[in-house]
Design a binder for these strands. Structure first.
Length: 164
DNA sequence: GCCAACGTTGGC
DNA sequence: GCCAACGTTGGC
């Protein structure tokens, strides 16, 4: 039987006031570099595990209400986050060098709007999503893997089929 | 605005 | 290597 790469799904958080799903949707090519991530676990997911074409839930944190706002996909291989070298950027990291960059990012491309915004409260109320990283108490990871069965349930709740 | 939970820093 | 202090995240 031919071996196909496992489907991979992710969730990324963004504060809508800082960079909303609609902003990504309107960006050139509906694409942006996911820069500014300064957490090692989140970085490792981007630099070691993400593959082009992986599905991404675009989550609005600190929103009113917080929730899943749209779908995206991984649109590039990992590459060094340029903001770590920019002294005028709040994410500048003086300890990082171009020879050995500390922080990496990928590009994300918006792939579809949801028929409706999916509030966090609805995710919490869905028993099939128990165990989802996002719903864990105190979960702060801004880039996190999503299990395929959770991905399917989220899309179902949002009112769309499994196909992008 | 509050505050619990978390990750990082730095003194020892 | 421990762990207290600190800064940040993010729901409410």
């Amino acid at each position: 039987m031919p071996e196909t790469p496992a489907a991979r799904y992710w969730l990324v958080k963004s504060e809508p006031d800082v960079y909303s799903f609609d902003q990504l949707w309107r960006a050139p090519g509906r694409k942006t570099g996911w820069d500014g991530v300064r957490n090692y676990q989140a970085r490792n997911f981007m630099s070691q595990q993400m593959r082009v074409g992986d599905g991404v839930l675009y989550y609005h944190s600190s929103g009113q209400p917080p929730g899943v706002a749209g779908l995206a996909e991984v649109a590039s291989a990992p590459y060094p986050d340029p903001t770590q070298f920019d002294p005028r950027d709040e994410h500048c990291d003086p300890a990082s060098t171009r020879a050995a960059p500390r922080w990496f990012q990928v590009d994300l491309r918006a792939t579809r709007r949801l028929p409706r915004f999916l509030p966090l409260a609805e995710l919490r109320a869905e028993s099939r999503l128990a165990g989802m990283e996002l719903l864990r108490r105190g979960s702060r990871l801004s880039v996190q893997p999503v299990r395929p069965e959770h991905w399917r349930v989220v899309l179902e709740l949002a009112g769309i089929s499994d196909r992008n």
